[in-house]
Write a protein that binds this DNA or RNA. Structure first.
Length: 684
RNA sequence: GGCGAGGUAGCUCAGUUGGUUAGAGCGUCGGAUUCAUAACCCGGAGGUCACGGGUUCAACUCCCGUCUUCGCUACCA
């Protein structure tokens, strides 16, 4: 029985958490954004007595995994096996309570995804398109964009990938590359026709608009709603659901040899296949209108879960749609973006080793600091402060002082509840409100708020003890002390129930110390959870202080990473292959002077320059607007490549290229003669 | 440039449909206390609600503009 659905519109819940990509371990960003909120939500609903399945699993297909496998000389299966195990184990140790943690390489998933595709195919949902794609004739296969390297058409970097140039950061199409080379065989690939199936999102625009823009205007988070609106308003395009690749779910059609489902198509179906693996009753969790489907994801996944996947479900026809998609923003680490490739992260499996038995500390910190409404920052100093000054000082300390006093005065047995003063009746009335307040916040996906409310219950307890001063009263009025400690113990019992979704390990310890049986949310709010004379177990600390040395060790670890990264940045790009003098002689570089400069409207980086090259005056468009103000560069001498074929940019014919030096972080500056020379002077 | 989400106390965040004196936690300062892991409890200080206009009797809240952070997207010979 939930607080926000008193009429019981929903009879059961399907909660999914984004499938982590199995090419690396889990870090705190994943946890704060997705898994901790999802786990709190799930544990709460279980405690409330709802029928719920909590689904997770590894996303194991896609090109990056095949690339990593090639690099390491192992099979893609080896890669996903490795990370799947690390991820699964670390989730379990943190207490993320999946009902099933599956994987998309499982046979059930392959079958399910395949069937799903076939069903849409039979319904005539897809459109087929033939396009040209690079094919490696030596390796006899089509090449994913990532498998093609070549010269970047923008910056000339020779090892740009087919989807992106790592030198200038531009995203590319493989067909943009000059001198494309296959990473498989080293051969020059050729363009070949290939057929692919597309999901025509454009045809569902009207429906999406009605369902999301009208139907979920008030209950979806602002960031989620806004992002969806932005996509729908801009107009949706058909999206390819298949790829030429041999790692993934095979396209179940005769004419689709060597093709697999595109990873974004197969991954969300993983939620369904995992449910299938979990229970033969899976259909009621996916196909009955009285099931509430909730996707926990990060903001990078909004479009897939709000637009693409629902369109797939809608097109299939027999599935329910998500009721909510509570996407979180991003978590930063020590003022810098978390990055797997730069190793700038706190890795869960490392945390679990460095801070044994402190799962709840991480859960607490990441929940209280979760990026629910905007990007947030994790710092080790804050981690320490939250543990020492809140979790320990308020929660742990209250429990400890209550148990120690009970041990001391009453031999560890729950004393009897005597006469109640107005102080107690107020306390009892307040206590009664907590389950509802916390529950409602959780149901509305306001986990920070819920956790803060939980802490307020411990505060209430501390205040009660301070106000009644049982350590003084014991000398004069033992009966009164019995009442005070009885109620304090009842608060501890309530904390046990209410903290479980957030701090399951603590709940376990508390339950053991209080010698409690299994209690549920419905029991909370009561002041008679522990009967008179109930024997307690030996008290122990719930939390321990985190010392400066431990924090310094973690900070130093990050500083090391930073140093290593800087070193790496300093290493310059390797020299290109040798050329003959004749090749160089073809290049005509002159010194010229900037006569005019203005911004190209509606661009961020482009300046339109008029250059006196000594030969002529010509117009050049240059991407330097982020580094130079137009008015500051007029009259400057620059180097200009004058015999480059003209190119039209934003409607302007650019006749040449200004030479720029670029450092590791992409900053540009002019390359110019060290003293003024005549315009038109050759550079050689 | 377009779109989306932000910009509120030193830090992390609340502020519902515009309505007394803008709130909370942590930190800080002071007090009280000693049952408790120097913890708890009480109190104080601390805010031009990014900035500039406008609507209104009244604006953190609504409208317009500017600056700024993050994300997506375009361009960057």
């Amino acid at each position: 029985m939930t607080y926000t659905d008193p009429n019981k519109k929903f009879k059961r819940y399907t909660v999914t958490s984004a499938l982590p990509y199995a090419n690396g371990p889990i870090h705190i960003g994943h946890l704060a954004g997705v898994y901790i909120p999802a786990d709190i939500y799930t544990r709460y609903l279980r405690s409330v007595g709802e029928d719920i399945v909590f689904i997770g699993g590894s996303d194991e297909h896609g090109v990056p995994i095949t690339i990593k496998a090639r690099k390491e000389g192992v099979s893609p299966q080896d890669i996903v096996d490795r990370y799947h195990e690390i991820i699964k184990k670390s989730f379990k140790e943190l207490g993320i309570s999946f009902d099933i943690y599956s994987r998309t390489s499982s046979p059930v998933h392959h079958q399910t995804a395949s069937d799903f595709f076939l069903e849409l195919y039979k319904k005539g949902v897809f459109i087929e398109k033939i396009s040209q794609q690079y094919y490696d004739e030596v390796a006899q296969q089509f090449l994913a964009d990532r498998y093609i390297t070549g010269t970047c058409p923008h910056c000339g970097f020779e090892k740009a990938y087919g989807d992106q140039c790592e030198s200038c950061g531009t995203s590319l199409n493989a067909t943009d590359l000059k001198n494309p080379t296959s990473a498989l065989s080293g051969a020059a690939p050729v363009l070949r026709d290939t057929k692919h199936w597309f999901l025509p999102l454009d045809k569902y625009e009207g429906w999406l608009s009605e369902w999301i823009l009208q139907g979920h205007k008030s209950d979806w988070k602002a960031n989620v709603y806004g992002q969806c609106k932005s996509w729908i308003d801009q107009g949706l395009q058909p999206r390819a659901v298949t790829r030429d690749l041999d790692w993934g779910v095979k396209v179940p059609l005769d004419s689709a040899e060597g093709k697999v489902l595109y990873v974004w198509f197969d991954a969300p179906i993983g939620y369904i296949s995992a449910t299938k693996e979990l229970t033969p009753d899976w259909e009621k969790y996916w196909k009955q209108e009285d099931t509430k489907l909730v996707h926990f994801i990060g903001k990078d996944n909004i479009v897939f879960h709000c637009i693409v996947f629902p369109t797939m479900l809608k097109a299939e026809g027999s599935y329910i749609l998500p009721d909510n998609v509570p996407a979180n923003e991003f978590l930063n680490l020590e003022n810098d973006k978390i990055s797997t490739s730069r190793n700038w992260a706190v890795w869960l499996h490392e945390y679990l080793l460095d801070f044994p038995d402190k799962q709840d500390v991480l859960r607490f910190v990441l929940c209280s600091n979760a990026p629910e409404t905007k990007d947030n920052d994790f710092t080790w100093k804050d981690f320490q402060a939250k543990n020492n000054n809140e979790l320990l000082a308020i929660f742990g300390n209250f429990v400890n002082r209550t148990l120690v006093l009970t041990q001391k005065y009453f031999g560890g047995k729950t004393p009897e509840l005597g006469e109640l003063t107005s102080l107690e009746t107020e306390l009892i009335a307040e206590l009664k409100e907590f389950p509802g307040k916390i529950g409602r916040s959780i149901e509305l996906y306001r986990f920070r708020e819920a956790l803060a409310e939980l802490m307020n219950l411990a505060r209430l307890g501390n205040k009660y003890l301070t106000e009644t001063e049982p350590w003084k009263l014991i000398k004069t009025d033992e009966n009164r002390v019995k009442t005070v400690l009885n109620l304090s113990l009842q608060i501890c019992a309530n904390l046990t129930i209410l903290c479980e979704p957030f701090l399951p390990f603590t709940a376990g310890k508390l339950s053991q110390m209080l010698n409690l049986g299994k209690l549920n949310w419905i029991d909370a709010g009561s002041y008679t959870l522990l009967p008179e004379g109930h024997a307690l177990n030996e008290p122990a600390f719930l939390f321990e202080k985190i010392e400066n040395v431990q924090i310094e060790a973690q900070v130093n670890k990050l500083l090391e990473t930073k140093k290593a990264n800087e070193l790496q940045n300093k290493t310059t790009v390797l020299a290109k292959a040798n050329i003959e003098y004749d090749d160089f002689a073809k290049i005509d570089i002159r010194v010229g002077t900037i006569l005019e400069a203005e911004r190209v409207p509606k661009t961020k980086k482009l300046l339109k320059l008029k250059i006196d090259t000594g030969i002529d005056q010509r117009t050049v468009v240059s991407g330097i607007a982020e580094y130079y103000e137009p008015e500051n560069i007029i009259g400057r001498q620059v180097s200009i490549l004058v015999n480059l074929a003209p190119k039209n940019l934003k409607g302007i014919d650019s006749q040449g290229m200004i030479l720029m030096a670029e450092d590791a972080d992409g900053r540009l500056c002019f390359v110019a003669p060290s003293q003024e020379v005549k315009n038109g002077s050759e550079i050689k």
